[in-house]
């Protein structure tokens, strides 16, 4: 109770200097980072993918504006965070998702995942994944890309791995996977494009490389260990990296700043936990792609990770 009043704030006299980073600028960088995957998604899945992305983004923006109006707040949809949320959510949906599914997912993500907690930065777990999780638990059939994409030549590598074993996926080339020639969420499956965009964002410092590195290490190290022990039973770590939504999760989902720890070591551990959980769910769980649930679980641990040697902002 006394928390907010007893904090001593050291204030110096103005003028102050603004570092120049704004929410809108960060969101625009995110969109640039996602752009290659948008192009590849349309290239691989055609106009249906564009339809899902457009519907998801416009619903997310509209719902956010409506919520802010209902809450009596200033409309802040021009910071483009809702656009990024809608796009990331669309990336996890199958390209053939029906319209009501897309609109429901975007509405749930923005209302329950973001605005119910007070808007941008107050959400305890990743916003797009809230929408995804509610829909995935409710409509497993509609959310399963393998069941929705019946007219495609691509195969679903993770389902094959789960039900037919590692030998069934041994002949799938990594190049095909990187080019997005696989069944999966419409954007999550564009592994190569996401790798490109994600690396750009990590180099620019928009997303923290410690989290991404931890995530990929957490998912690939145990996979590599299993692969070395018995290659006939386990898929290679690079196969794991390029399938499902590991690259999307590692670069774009788990790094959402509102849910991530704030210091380098906890960030790395946070990524490591997320990646490790992904591997565990993939190998032993009932879900073929564990990334979304692993990220949600890792989000929950952030308050505890933040307790590792905390420092006030600017402290040395």
């Amino acid at each position: 109770m006394s928390g907010s009043t007893s904090v001593l704030l050291a204030m110096s006299a103005p003028p102050y200097w603004h570092c120049g980073r704004t929410i809108r600028q960060t969101s625009l960088y995110m969109l640039v980072g996602l752009a290659p995957a948008i192009v590849m998604a349309v290239w691989n899945w055609g106009l249906p993918a564009l339809r899902v992305m457009a519907l998801c983004v416009s619903t997310a923006v509209a719902v956010e504006a409506l919520c802010q109006r209902a809450m009596g707040r200033d409309c802040s949809v021009d910071d483009f965070t809702a656009v990024v949320t809608g796009l990331l959510l669309a990336f996890l949906l199958p390209a053939a998702a029906p319209w009501w599914l897309v609109m429901l997912a975007a509405t749930v993500a923005i209302t329950l995942g973001k605005m119910a907690f007070g808007g941008l930065g107050a959400n305890p777990v990743n916003t797009p994944l809230v929408g995804w999780a509610v829909l995935f638990v409710s409509f497993p059939l509609f959310m399963d890309p393998n069941a929705m994409q019946l007219t495609t030549d691509f195969t679903d590598p993770l389902t094959r791995l789960k039900y037919f074993g590692a030998e069934a996926v041994a002949d799938i080339s990594l190049m095909d996977l990187l080019l997005g020639q696989q069944i999966g969420g419409l954007g999550a499956s564009q592994a190569g494009a996401l790798l490109l965009g994600g690396s750009f964002l990590a180099l620019r410092g928009i997303i923290r490389w410690q989290i991404a590195l931890g995530f990929f290490l957490g998912a690939m190290a145990p996979a590599a260990l299993c692969f070395m022990v018995d290659p006939s039973l386990n898929a290679s770590p690079f196969f794991h990296l390029c399938t499902g939504s590991i690259i999307l999760g590692g670069f774009f989902l788990i790094t959402e700043t509102a849910n991530a720890p704030v210091r380098p070591l906890p960030m790395f551990l946070y990524g490591l936990i997320g990646g490790g959980l992904t591997f565990i769910i993939r190998k032993y769980g009932i879900y073929v792609d564990g990334v979304p649930f692993a990220v949600l679980l890792a989000n929950m641990l952030t308050p505890f990770l933040d307790m590792i040697r905390p420092k006030p902002f600017g402290g040395r």
């Binding site: 928390g3 907010s4 007893s6 904090v7 001593l8 933040d306 307790m307 905390p310 006030p312």
Partner: peptide, 19 residues
Amino acid sequence: QGCGSCQACASADTQCRQG
């Protein structure tokens, strides 16, 4: 709103008072 009951705030608060 029991802000003090939240662990993250409470620990940051202690830190601030110490530092």
